[in-house]
Write a protein that binds this DNA or RNA. Structure first.
Lengths: 193, 193
DNA sequence: CCCATAATTCATCGCATGATGAATTTCGGG
DNA sequence: CCCGAAATTCATCATGCGATGAATTATGGG
């Protein structure tokens, strides 16, 4: 049995690498992640990663594409009207993180925190694509500040639930969190000062 | 002028190293930080850091001691009574981050996100020393969950204001943030479901 | 004023990393 | 059924890392 050369049968190696990369970047962030470790996890020689994606940065970008399209989900969440928006936002946020899409999001968060460049990129994307759309729908004073404050509640939730994993938050059901936090987010978006 | 050997006069090198270390760990987190870079920032040979602190981990621990004592500040914030607690919490939190104590806290956050071990250590410390004390003072159902949810709002604020630096949050005044977020934190701690 | 000790730098080690290029094997269209 | 292209591994390079130990210089108590 040869140790080198192309393997028998067609393989989904590219996909396997991407999954291992997402998991690894999601565990330790961009800086601390190593191409070699991703290779081991994927059961593949590290050089193959360079072959497919060119570089560590290449595989990172391929692995952590933003897993949800704000141009789609923001209008969808706004559609039923302003009332109940807070609760819908929280539930959608938690359900997305709990889904397979949570893996690239963890990777993004971990990398943003350890890299100024990643932080700038994410800040510009989220400000424009998410917060801008949300603020435009707010019928109250200081919509930009309101949208950002609402976002801060969601970000904090993600940090404690998925990064630090503090109980009882980490084990709470999505609907339970939506019930507790929804009114707060709602108040931030539409309440009086 | 000699390039080697002890410098003339007594020096505060140890302190200079600690400040450079706090700043550097606060910029990039534990994993991505390098002893060499801290040495350059402190105007000192990297070997001197090993001499004083033994290892990279040693200088990290020395640099990022938790900069506020929960056994002191929690009772102090609770003292005036439950009403207004939310606002006092937010203002104290923001003022602490805005003070020199914010530097080690940034270092802690950045490192927690890139290291499972750091996350576990912080989780246990905060759960016991901060959330435990807070939950004990809450006169409502599910105090532990309430304390954690309130904390999530503060953590999210820190992330967006100090790590990602998204406007207009990053430039808002402490009192303004306390006014906006205080009632939410209060509701989390004492409100009805 | 001497000398043990502390402060500081330098040279260097071993290791892990990201990347590259050559070698080997299989696939699939003509 | 053959041969170019794709897939995969291996050997290797340069770099930057944390750490160590020896060398050098100043300090301060006796």
């Amino acid at each position: 049995m040869p140790r080198t050369g192309r393997r028998a049968g067609n393989s989904d190696t590219r996909q396997v690498i991407l999954e291992a990369a997402r998991a690894h970047f999601g565990k330790v962030g961009y800086e601390a992640a190593t191409v070699r470790r991703i290779g081991v996890d994927a059961g593949v020689d590290p050089a193959l990663i360079a072959h497919y994606f060119g570089s560590k940065e290449g595989v990172f970008i391929a692995a952590v594409e933003f897993p949800a399209d704000p141009a789609e989900f923001i209008p969808r969440l706004l559609a039923p009207g302003i009332e109940g928006l807070g609760e819908r936002l929280v539930r959608f946020f938690v359900e997305t993180w709990d889904s397979p899409a949570g893996s690239p999001m963890l990777a993004i968060v971990r990398s943003v925190v350890s890299s100024e460049a990643a932080a700038t990129a994410l800040r510009e994307f989220v400000t424009r694509e998410v917060l801008g759309r949300l603020a435009a729908a707010i019928d109250a004073d200081q919509p930009q500040l309101r949208a950002t404050l609402a976002a801060s509640q969601l970000v904090g939730l993600a940090m404690l639930r998925y990064v630090v994993r503090v109980e009882p938050l980490a084990s709470a059901k999505a609907q339970e969190l939506a019930t507790w936090l929804g009114p707060n987010v709602q108040r931030q978006l539409t309440g009086h000062v």
